[in-house]
Design a binder for these strands. Structure first.
Lengths: 106, 106
DNA sequence: GGTTAAGTTCGATGGGTGTCAAAGCATCGG
DNA sequence: CCGATGCTTTGACACCCATCGAACTTAACC
């Protein structure tokens, strides 16, 4: 019933690509919003605090997914997104916490 | 005798700018080369493994410095560069280690 | 079926950026 | 003083990227 959008395998997650994906205000905001919650969340909920058009939000979700940061599944008309915690922690230990920690927001 | 090139203050180090600075193959290579050594090192020594022209190397050093990642001092004809360990660790704990750890190179 | 709703894809556009060659600028050595 | 050295600046070029409006796709609902 719910299919998963294509994403890079664990081994093909690239550090430069990952950093480039995080190096954008909108995408960093999305990631921080996901990080402050637990488990998969509806895309539109996460994107609420962001002030860009729908196509732009869609574009940013794609960049995050193709960088290996998130997993997106299609459920009906909606998209559910979640951070790839285990993969990222195994690949680059401590990176998520360092970048997305609330203290980094100041 | 040795003057220091301008760099952002501790408070004005921005996470997005910092990530953008790291999200480049050449600059990441430079940072990793600095990270594997202790203390300030000659710019030209660090840039040995990089296959770009001198102006490009100079450009990348500037980006790193203006992002708050490095400190550069002028000593005669040479430039000596070092990572701002203390500042970065205080500002974004664990970030340097997560990004520049040798394990991330694989 | 027809309609609404949620997201995506498709151009187009404007701004940013990595790269280099050439010229410029201090600095050291003779 | 003069040439060599180490690095920067400038200008130019190609390319990438964030953004949006319009059109499209798919799914829920009456």
């Amino acid at each position: 019933m719910s299919r998963q959008l294509p994403q890079p395998s664990f081994d093909s997650i690239n550090l430069v690509t990952l950093l480039a994906a995080l190096a954008d205000p909108v995408r960093l905001t999305l990631m921080q919003a996901m990080y402050s919650r637990t488990g998969p969340v509806d895309c539109s909920v996460i994107a609420e605090g962001v002030e860009v058009s729908a196509p732009t939000v869609s574009h940013h979700y794609r960049v995050l997914r193709e960088a290996g940061l998130t997993t997106t599944t299609v459920e009906g008309r909606r998209r559910v997104v979640s951070i790839r915690y285990e993969d990222l922690e195994a690949r680059f230990p401590g990176l998520l916490a360092a970048v997305l920690a609330p203290a980094a927001n100041t």
